[in-house]
C-alpha cells in the first residue's frame, strides 16, 4: 500500500456545510467510514486533496419513523442498521443485508451511505499500484484495456454493496444534497449499468438519507449472499427476496441482485409468478429466471458460471423459506 497523500480533512456539522466545503476544494471526496475509499486512495486509484468527513453530522445519524414511513440517515452505521428494531420488523432483508456486510469491526464504522455509494469492484482493479502497473492498469483506471472483456470498451466491474438490493425491494428513495440544493431520487435511478461510472450523483452531491414506506404485514423479506469466506467477504452474488403468500398462492414477489453486474437491480418479469401456487415447480422456475438475469462476468477469481448458478439457488432457497 502507498502512503496517504497530504490532504486536508474537514469536519462539518451540517449537510449544508459539507456541501460547501466540498465545493470549495479543487479535488475533494466525501468520507464516511472509509473502509472502501481509504483503501482505494492507498492503492493509488485516486488522490483527493481534501476529504469531507460526514460522520459528525447529526441529521445523517438518525433513524426516524413517521406513520407508515421510515427515514434512515446516510451516516447510520451498518451495525446500527442491522440492530434497528423497526428495520428488523418491517424490512427484514435490509437488516439482514446490513448484518452481512464484511465483519463486525467493519460494520462499526461502515455506513449506509457508504455501502450504497460503494465503488464497483473487479479482480483487476482492487489491487495495489504495483500490481496494476505491472498489468498495464485497466479500462476503469488509467489503462486502455478491460482485462475482463479485452475486445470491448465497457467496464464490467461489479457493484458489491449488500444493502442496495434489499432497499430496492421496498422502492426506497434516496435524498441527495448538492450545490443546487436537495432532491429525491428513486434508489434504482442512483445507478447506471457502467462499471466505470455507476453512480448518477451530480458533482458535489452526497447521500443524506434513505426513505421508505412500510409494506403490509403480509410481506416477508430476506437476504443471503454467497462469498469465498463466510466471515467477511464481498458477495460473489447477493440476493434479496420480497414475497407474500396468501391461500397458498404468491401475491407479491420481487428479487434484488447485487455482485453480479455494475449495478444492483430488481429481476425483471416476475409478474408471471403472481397468482401461481407456491410449489416446487414455481420455485424452480424462479431459480431459472434469476439465473438468466444474473449475468456475472469474470470480475472475481470465482468463475461467473458459479455466480450465476448460486444467485438462482439463493433466490430459490429464500423464497422456499416463506412457502
Amino acid at each position: 500500500m502507498e502512503l496517504l497523500p497530504d490532504l486536508k480533512l474537514h469536519h462539518p456539522r451540517s449537510v449544508e456545510d459539507a456541501v460547501s466545503l466540498h465545493a470549495a476544494a479543487s479535488s475533494g471526496r466525501y468520507l464516511a467510514g472509509g473502509s472502501d475509499l481509504l483503501v482505494n486512495i492507498r492503492r493509488g486509484i485516486e488522490q483527493p486533496e481534501s476529504l469531507v468527513y460526514l460522520n459528525n453530522i447529526a441529521e445523517m445519524q438518525a433513524i426516524t419513523e413517521a406513520t407508515g414511513q421510515i427515514s434512515i440517515g446516510g451516516a447510520v452505521t451498518l451495525r446500527e442498521l442491522a440492530e434497528s428494531a423497526p428495520v428488523r420488523q418491517h424490512f427484514a432483508a435490509v437488516a439482514q443485508a446490513a448484518g452481512e456486510v464484511a465483519g463486525p469491526s467493519h460494520r462499526e464504522y461502515g455506513t449506509l451511505g457508504g455501502n450504497l455509494c460503494l465503488d464497483t469492484r473487479c479482480v483487476f482493479y482492487n489491487q495495489s499500484e504495483w500490481w496494476r502497473s505491472a498489468n498495464a492498469y485497466c479500462l476503469k483506471n488509467r489503462g486502455e484495456i478491460c482485462h475482463v472483456a479485452p475486445g470491448g470498451k465497457k467496464c464490467f466491474a461489479a457493484f458489491s454493496g449488500d444493502v442496495a438490493p434489499a432497499l430496492l425491494l421496498f422502492d426506497a428513495e434516496v435524498e441527495l444534497a448538492g450545490p443546487d440544493g436537495r432532491r429525491r431520487l428513486a434508489l434504482a435511478d442512483l445507478y447506471r449499468n457502467d462499471g466505470m461510472d455507476h453512480l448518477t450523483l451530480g458533482q458535489g452531491e452526497l447521500l443524506v438519507a434513505v426513505h421508505m414506506a412500510k409494506p403490509s404485514e403480509a410481506v416477508h423479506s430476506a437476504y443471503a449472499k454467497s462469498r469465498v469466506r463466510g466471515s467477511i467477504d464481498f458477495p460473489l452474488a447477493g440476493v434479496a427476496v420480497r414475497i407474500a403468500v396468501s391461500d397458498g398462492k404468491i401475491s407479491d414477489l420481487q428479487v434484488g441482485l447485487t455482485g453480479v453486474s455494475p449495478l444492483p437491480f430488481l429481476v425483471r418479469k416476475l409478474d408471471k409468478f403472481i397468482g401461481r401456487a407456491a410449489d416446487d415447480a414455481c420455485l424452480e422456475e424462479l431459480r431459472d429466471a434469476v439465473r438468466g438475469q444474473a449475468k456475472a462476468m469474470k470480475t472475481t477469481f470465482t468463475p461467473p458460471h458459479y455466480r450465476r448458478r448460486v444467485a438462482g439457488a439463493l433466490a430459490q432457497k429464500l423464497a422456499a423459506s416463506f412457502f
Binding site: H11, G33, G34, S35, V39, Y53, G103, S105
Partner: peptide
C-alpha cells in the same frame, strides 16, 4: 494487511472494536 482485511489493528474506540488502519486519527477527536 494495511487494508481492513486482517483485523490485527483492532482497537476499541468508545468501547467499540474498529480497525485503526482504516481510521484517520483526526476523526477520533
Amino acid at each position: 494487511c494495511d487494508g481492513g482485511e486482517c483485523g490485527a489493528c483492532t482497537v476499541l474506540i468508545d468501547d467499540r472494536p474498529r480497525h485503526a488502519c482504516l481510521t484517520l486519527a483526526a476523526t477520533c477527536q
